[in-house]
């Protein structure tokens, strides 16, 4: 901005910009999560990522469905929307398309996103609306106390599916890539800063960005405490080649952490449209 030629500018003091920190995005409400839940750290990663983005809380909306992780909106100071089970992506799509000025973050769990909300996941990926989807995947329905989800191993024993479901696991990264998501990454809840960095990258990337976050449920899947030992940095850098990303997913052990794919597909057009005529003018087409 040229400040020398505008006399008005000379008398207006530059606003004092206080940098936003993660604390500015964290609300005072105490999460309902169990002690040791991975979602605590994800919340911290989210608030840190938002501070990296620097968008004021009033201009951010966090949208979720139903499940333990879907409680996250109220734990931020952003505008929140805690809707019905499985429909967070639909609600967020409507919000973002109607209000493209907002930073829209969608969050939820594996049951919410991959089972009841599976169809919306496919279509959110292909529609490519500019928003970020975080799935806190713990391979279990936690809120209903331990039933298998689409990402649960087929032999995992539970009251609802004794001896296991016998059904192969859903691979969200493959599905996201195949469906056209513009950004696909995996993070681990145990790594607060690494996850915050990936979420910030996802938010910065145009179009629909998807981050699968391994977030242990120590209550119903105590063995997931070992994820800390089994996760590892992805062996290859991010690619914009979907075919290459797909080949890497074929060899994926599910524990690779990092950004897999960042494409350049144009986001769904959500620009604010200026009216070209009035409703009264439209009425003329009915007139005889």
């Amino acid at each position: 901005m040229n400040t020398t030629t505008n006399p008005a500018a000379a008398v207006v003091a530059e606003p004092v910009v206080v940098p936003l920190t993660a604390a500015n995005y964290k609300s005072s409400y105490k999460p309902i999560w169990c002690p040791g839940c991975g979602d605590f750290t994800v919340l911290s990663s989210v608030t840190k990522a938002l501070s990296i983005m620097g968008v004021p809380p009033k201009d951010c909306a966090v949208v979720s469905g139903i499940g333990c992780s879907s409680r996250i909106p109220a734990y931020t100071t952003c505008y929140g929307f805690h809707g019905v089970h499985g429909r967070s992506l639909a609600a967020a799509t409507g919000l973002k398309v109607a209000r493209p000025d907002l930073q829209v973050l969608v969050a939820g769990g594996d049951g919410d996103g991959y089972s009841i909300g599976g169809n919306h996941f496919l279509h959110a990926c292909r529609r490519n609306v500019d928003m970020t989807y975080l799935v806190m995947d713990n391979h279990v329905y936690g809120m209903t106390k331990g039933q298998p989800s689409p990402t649960t191993e087929p032999d995992w024993d539970s009251k609802l599916s004794p001896g296991g479901t016998g059904v192969r696991v859903f691979n969200p990264m493959v599905v996201a890539l195949a469906s056209g998501a513009n950004f696909v990454a995996r993070a681990f809840a145990g790594d607060l800063h690494g996850t915050a960095d990936i979420i910030a990258q996802a938010m910065k990337h145009p179009g629909f960005s998807f981050v699968e976050i391994l977030s242990p449920c120590v209550t119903f899947r105590p063995e997931q405490r070992d994820w800390r030992k089994t996760v590892h940095e992805a062996e290859a850098p991010v690619t914009d080649d979907a075919a290459l990303a797909a080949r890497r997913l074929m060899k994926d052990d599910g524990m690779n952490i990092g950004v897999l794919y960042a494409g350049d597909r144009a986001p769904y057009p959500a620009s604010v449209r200026q009216p070209r005529c009035t409703v009264a003018e439209l009425e003329a087409e009915f007139a005889l």
Partner: peptide
């Protein structure tokens, strides 16, 4: 023409939640 948007949803579960979001 009047500055609004119509979005085709994948199903009615989506369309109703989209209008709630908007």
């Amino acid at each position: 023409k009047v500055g609004g948007t119509l979005l085709q949803a994948e199903d009615e579960l989506a369309s109703i939640n989209m209008i709630i979001g908007a």
